[in-house]
């Protein structure tokens, strides 16, 4: 692994960044000629849960995808646990948006979770009993153990989301990046997911999630990252999740109901 670090040629990480599970510097991503994310810096705190929030089209998912190299940024640097992204792939688990795949794909729940073990299985390795046992254990953690043999199209939206989470768990990563894990899921699923994420945090892992429900931010997360194309604010919920910052991020787009909810927040 040491050799990898030198061979990838990444510059020595700047002081203060080396411990961050995910550090982003000057990241700009553009679709066509309209930047979706502009010159964003982000430093994720280790062992904590961070919510990325902002209005629709603010670049939340784009930021996540660019951090993972799924989309190629125009400029900017990403370091993961002090090294380049490619050197650290095995330590990152990603949970994409549920709507990003075709759920009629011919595959079973167990097969999807086993995808999380792709690296260990290699190209030709056979799926052994212990691989299945590990996948089953991940399904159990999200309460989906009874569904292992179902075709994925038979699941409800919330159950599909939990299968995706189980696949990420199977990777046994350090850093978990989730894109809208609570979007359109039932209450049972939301509870199951949040308890899994909190357990990850208690085990010292780092969790970053794109989040859309402002009313649960304070309950679920330690830190927030507010974005509207540019970074608006970043820090602990108690300091940064303020009515003023939200107004700055959402502008006039904050629904009245949300404003009412948030009026209790510090200005």
């Amino acid at each position: 692994m040491l050799q990898l670090a030198t061979r990838d040629g990444s510059p020595a990480p700047a002081a203060g960044l080396d411990h961050s599970p995910l550090a982003i510097r000057g990241l700009t991503v553009s679709y066509g000629e309209k930047p979706a994310v502009f010159s964003v810096d982000m430093t994720v705190q280790p062992g904590a849960m961070t919510a990325i929030i902002g209005p629709n089209g603010a670049g939340k998912s784009t930021l996540l995808k660019a951090a993972l190299g799924i989309i190629r940024p125009l400029s900017g640097q990403v370091t993961v646990l002090g090294r380049s992204l490619d050197a650290q792939r095995a330590r990152i688990a990603y949970v994409p948006q549920r709507a990003s795949v075709d759920w009629d794909f011919p595959t079973h729940v167990m097969d999807v979770v086993l995808m999380g073990l792709n690296r260990e299985l290699g190209l030709l390795g056979r799926v052994r009993a212990w691989h299945k046992a590990r996948a089953m254990d991940c399904l159990r953690r999200v309460g989906m153990q009874d569904f292992a043999d179902r075709q994925i199209g038979q699941l409800s939206g919330g159950q599909q989301q939990r299968v995706f989470l189980a696949r990420a768990l199977a990777q046994d990563a350090e850093l978990y990046l989730l894109d809208e894990p609570f979007a359109g899921v039932d209450a049972a699923t939301e509870k199951a997911i949040i308890s899994v994420l909190k357990a990850l945090k208690d085990a010292g892992k780092t969790v970053v999630a794109v989040h859309h429900d402002l009313s649960t931010v304070a309950d679920y997360f330690d830190n927030v990252f507010l974005i509207n194309t540019r970074k608006v604010a970043e820090g602990p919920v108690s300091e940064v999740f303020t009515a003023g910052n939200l107004q700055a991020a959402y502008g006039g787009r904050l629904a009245t109901a949300q404003v009412d909810q948030l009026s209790a927040l510090p200005a």
């Binding site: 490619d86 994409p96 990003s100 995808m115 792709n118 190209l123």
Partner: peptide, 22 residues
């Protein structure tokens, strides 16, 4: 096909996740 069936299936099912895995 025998050699690459896993990565090809993963890319077909979920290209974003595949990219995130490197």
């Amino acid at each position: 096909i025998l050699m690459l069936r896993r990565p090809m299936t993963l890319v077909a099912f979920d290209p974003e996740y595949a990219a995130a895995r490197g």
